[in-house]
C-alpha cells in the first residue's frame, strides 16, 4: 500500500512526541489499544486551568505509520482547543485529512478514543463526571 504525502510527513516528522507528567492535576492521559492488537496509543493533554484551553499535547504510539500520523495530527489539533471542543474531534476528520484508506480507519479510531480517554482522565482528576460516548465504534 502506498501512503499519502501527509501520512509520510507526520511519520517522518512527527509533532509532539513525548511524555507529560501524568501525576499533575492538569494533565490527562489516555492509553488505548493493546500490544496484542499491534497498536497502542498514549495521548496526553495539559490544560490551562484558568481558561480550560489545552496548552500542550503529547503522544507516543506503537503501531503502523497511519497510527503514528493520526496521533501526531491529533496532538496538533488539540493544542489551543478547549477541553470540551477536544472531544468533538471525529475520527473521520482524521481519515479525511490524512487520506487514510479503509483498512486504516481503525488507526484513526484509536486516535479518537485516545483523545476521549485523555479528556476523561483529566475530568476525573478534577472532580468532573466522566463523559459517556455513544456509539463508540466497535473495532
Amino acid at each position: 500500500m502506498s501512503y499519502s504525502e501527509k501520512v509520510i510527513d507526520h511519520y517522518s516528522n512527527p509533532k509532539n512526541v513525548g511524555t507529560l507528567d501524568k501525576s499533575k492535576q492538569n494533565v490527562g492521559t489516555g492509553l488505548v489499544g493493546a500490544p496484542e492488537c499491534g497498536d497502542v496509543m498514549r495521548l496526553q493533554i495539559e490544560v490551562d486551568e484558568t481558561t480550560g484551553i489545552i496548552k500542550d499535547a503529547k503522544f507516543k504510539t506503537f503501531g503502523c505509520g497511519s497510527a503514528i500520523a493520526s496521533s501526531s495530527l491529533a496532538t496538533e489539533w488539540l493544542k489551543g482547543k478547549s477541553v470540551d471542543d477536544a472531544v468533538k474531534i471525529d475520527n473521520m476528520d482524521i481519515v479525511e485529512e490524512l487520506s487514510l484508506p479503509p483498512v486504516k480507519i481503525h488507526c484513526s479510531v484509536l486516535a479518537e478514543d485516545a483523545i476521549k480517554a485523555a479528556v476523561n482522565d483529566y475530568r476525573q482528576k478534577n472532580g468532573l463526571p466522566e463523559l459517556k460516548f455513544e456509539g463508540s465504534v466497535v473495532h
Binding site: 501512503y3 511519520y11 499491534g38 497498536d39 506503537f62 503502523c64 505509520g65 497510527a67 503514528i68
Partner: peptide, 11 residues
C-alpha cells in the same frame, strides 16, 4: 520488540 512491523518498514 516494542516497535510495530509496518511502522518500522515505513521508515
Amino acid at each position: 520488540k516494542y516497535v510495530e512491523g509496518e511502522g518500522l518498514m515505513m521508515g
